[in-house]
Design a binder for these strands. Structure first.
Lengths: 231, 231
DNA sequence: TTTAATAAATGTATTTTATACACTTAAATA
DNA sequence: TATTTAAGTGTATAAAATACATTTATTAAA
């Protein structure tokens, strides 16, 4: 069989928008470039696609290289292809968004001079990475309302307060405690553990976990996760 | 400045999932391949990215080549990169979804042996194109509930009945006529024209147009189009 | 010219869901 | 034992979604 010999070929990259949640803040993991162009400037973590892997694998590889983590929540977003987006050479880049639980001591590879930034305090980024981040944030806002991904930003066991904080910081608005708990409980996809987190109060607050098995069973029966109106 | 000389390069393609609406049916435009591999089998319309264009431009070019249309509603969806998705040669493909108003006599280029199929009667497609179509349909279902794109499938002037049919066929459920009209009117983004379509009844039904200016103004003030719960 | 036929146009009551809102409880520390 | 702190809890009201049937405009046939 012949090849498509006449056609142009392109460099293909993946760039990861890595979100983490720390106490009250939504954070993003950025790296400091140590090569030209834009040496010393902040950038998303990325890498070129290799011929023996697909894009998901490339994104996982890049993410693992930086964080040491595997099985991270990772989703393909958009593909960016402006002719001049990379001044060195034409490169088409596929963005991926990753959700990480920061509390379980992720060991960031020091080779990349990576740093977590609160979303509002993040520096300007190289190329079209600012746009990638904006697109990822609006996707995150949508996703958190339609898929049970808030949990991905928390440790396996979490308090209602923590979960509420995740939603508040992503949706950008304060939520009423009682209404929040009522809504979450109505979804019936959490397991209450007979164990308390005592770090935040004398009384202590009960811990919960996401019941993935139950969630999947409900989805199979037609249930759709829907948390709030997308304001 | 140096090049990224060490890196692998790839063929990049776009594939278009072209939706149209005809009376009661949601249709999709497919072409019959006249080259190997898979000669004679049905496929999405696609083409390779060229080095002097970005992906949106490539998708528009491909679409224009097939339909003669410009300014079609076109949206990038997902990028497919399985190693063996094209048996001839490694090709990464970006899917685009297009919405076309069939009633305004689109002149399909006969070179491609293209044909409109009702979604349910569409043949099996080459490569991973079946998956692309499935993904596009679920995106369409979501989009029609959150963006005013139903109009893209209709002529500029349309009846409420036609609009309701578009929603019904996309959402896959029957809607109550009065509730539908009440909801649409509550959105306040249509203009009622003092002109009737008399093709469907003796009484005739009023025509409407989408008021894009008003819609954009409302969006600027914080309005978000939201049509129905995503069932 | 009257009648029959057809699809268009219209409003309200009921149910469901979302929101607003404040006091009590458990536990540790002083 | 009293004080402090955050956790935990329920209900009334408002808003949104749903269910539902009759009248109207027009043409074609009688």
């Amino acid at each position: 069989m012949e090849n498509y010999t006449e056609q142009d070929k392109f460099l293909l990259a993946v760039d990861c928008i890595i979100f983490g949640f720390d106490k009250q803040d939504l954070k993003i993991l950025l790296i400091k470039r140590d090569f030209e162009p834009e040496r010393g400037n902040w950038s998303l973590m990325g890498g070129f696609l290799k011929k023996n892997e697909n894009l998901d694998e490339a994104a996982n590889r890049v993410l693992h290289h930086l964080t040491g983590l595997e099985n991270v929540y990772l989703e393909q977003l958009q593909t960016y292809s402006a002719l001049d987006r990379d001044p060195v050479e034409r490169t088409v880049s596929v963005s991926y968004f990753a959700l990480i639980n920061l509390t379980e001591k992720t060991k960031i590879n020091e080779d990349f001079s990576a740093k977590w930034f609160t979303i509002n305090e993040a520096p300007s980024l190289i190329f079209d990475h600012n746009q990638m981040v904006l697109d990822a944030i609006s996707w995150l806002r949508y996703s958190v309302s339609t898929k049970p991904i808030g949990f991905e930003l928390l440790p396996e066991k979490f308090t209602m307060k923590q979960l509420q904080s995740v939603y508040e910081v992503i949706l950008g608005e304060e939520l009423d405690k009682r209404n929040f708990i009522n809504k979450i409980n109505a979804l019936d996809i959490l397991i209450k553990i007979e164990e308390k987190d005592r770090s935040s109060s004398r009384k202590g607050s009960f811990l919960y976990t996401f019941d993935e098995v139950k969630y999947k069973a409900k989805v199979a029966e037609g249930f759709t996760f829907k948390f709030m109106g997308v304001k």
